[in-house]
Design a protein around this nucleic acid. Structure first.
Lengths: 245, 245
DNA sequence: CAATTTCAATAACCTATGTTATTCACTCTC
DNA sequence: GAGAGTGAATAACATAGGTTATTGAAATTG
């Protein structure tokens, strides 16, 4: 199934014509990128909306002196910035982390959706509200949580989102982020990320080796990160999604 | 002029029927609150969208142990969470800072807009994209800037936004935030906020006494906060708004 | 398959910011 | 107009996390 359809069906039930439309539109205008390259750069005029079909990417912002903050991660099925083409200039960059496949969605695509596919409109709204909620949670994470809590929280979020995308198997998942990526996302130094991961490891909260993360006891990791999944809004028409998994 | 009309006209030119519709709809269902009370609480089912007509408010999130993070400030004309009624549960609270007047906007209000007022739809999208951009900038602020930069940046943002709302006069504005509010918003302790404000004062970057803030040299404060206004997207149909002010 | 480069681990040391406590000035209220 | 409460200022001290540097292993590249 197309990652976009899978993602939007987390929010609303789509008809087969909804699905057919999305699958077709998201299959045109594909671009592939290697790891660690810019897909969109701050300052550019936004033309299309990017959809991640495969691989990991991130939004990041940078200060003049080079300090860099990853402000979100994109997993397969994530839409980068709904309707950005309204704005004149990107205020952040989008970079790949792994090899990625991006679909470019045109303004016309969204106009056709608003005119003809009301369920998809609702699903897109939902996705964009969740995206905003994640950004607020990151604000809380950086402002209030300690290094250990922060890292635990970040890992929980990614694990939940990967699970929704069907990219976990049991308690493990592929995890391509380096400690430098985690540092840029958590506002910690690389050295302290290393210390913090050691601490999580020695508490048996995570097993992280190579590019694989194992979370032996998600409940305990959530507790360590004061993680409450409410902000991910994983419900659909009154039904809890995590009850299905 | 209605603060909402003023705000949305920053983004698109509205017709007089657009304006009339907004003014009427935003004038029904008003609620007034005293300072420092909750307008909406985390966990509640969202019924309406809140619009701030007068006064200052904020979004905040709290951890179980009481640590609190203000994740945004709302000034007159700001819409709290476009289309939240799609979601089942609020993931944050909205609290007043001063006396506030709130207009509750119903789902039907937005349905009528989508059906009949395309310019307003664009303006609302724009407002919501700016809101998201501000949240990303706060992530950068908390993750990468030092205390001094962070505080300078926050003050710059508020000053720009107040100016757009017509709430500055020359280089000064009313400023009802306490040092505790600034601490909750910046992720710093109250004591360190105090030290940081002293530092900004002794560099003549701000004059902050009572409930009045004066910014004698905005350019210098911006430099101190590595502030770049691009993320506020203050353009309209190709024209720079700040050139008008 | 040598030569780089990247990533992770660790150590030693440093500092920005947090914590706790006290005092002072207001301003609200009964 | 005494008492209580809030907000700001300041001091003394504590610590979480930053910085710089080195090493080794594992990828990547020519």
């Amino acid at each position: 199934m197309s990652p976009l359809v899978r993602r939007l069906e987390q929010f609303v039930r789509l008809s087969s014509s909804d699905r057919a439309f999305l699958t077709r539109a998201a299959g045109e205008r594909l671009r592939k990128f290697g790891p660690r390259v810019d897909v969109v750069r701050e300052g550019e005029r936004p033309r299309d909306v990017q959809l991640v079909l495969a691989g990991w990417a991130c939004r990041y912002k940078q200060l003049e002196d080079g300090r860099r903050q990853v402000v979100s991660f994109f997993l397969p099925g994530d839409i980068c910035d709904l309707n950005v083409f309204i704005l004149r200039e990107m205020d952040h960059s989008i970079g790949s982390i792994t090899d990625v496949t991006i679909a470019d969605l045109s303004r016309e695509f969204f106009e056709e959706i608003s005119a003809r596919y009301p369920r998809i409109v609702t699903a897109l709204w939902w996705e964009s509200l969740v995206d905003a909620a994640i950004q607020r949670e990151w604000t809380l994470n950086l402002g209030q949580r300690t290094a250990l809590e922060r890292m635990a929280h970040l890992l929980c979020e990614l694990f939940f989102r990967l699970r929704l995308a069907g990219l976990t198997s049991g308690d493990s998942c592929e995890f391509p982020l380096t400690q430098a990526d985690l540092a840029d996302a958590s506002g910690l130094s690389k050295v302290h990320v290393n210390r913090t991961l050691q601490e999580l490891r020695s508490a048996n909260l995570i097993v992280l080796r190579g590019k694989t993360l194992v979370v032996p006891d998600l409940r305990r990791l959530m507790d360590a990160g004061l993680f409450n999944a409410n902000y991910l809004h994983m419900e659909r028409e009154g039904r809890q999604l995590d009850a299905i998994e």
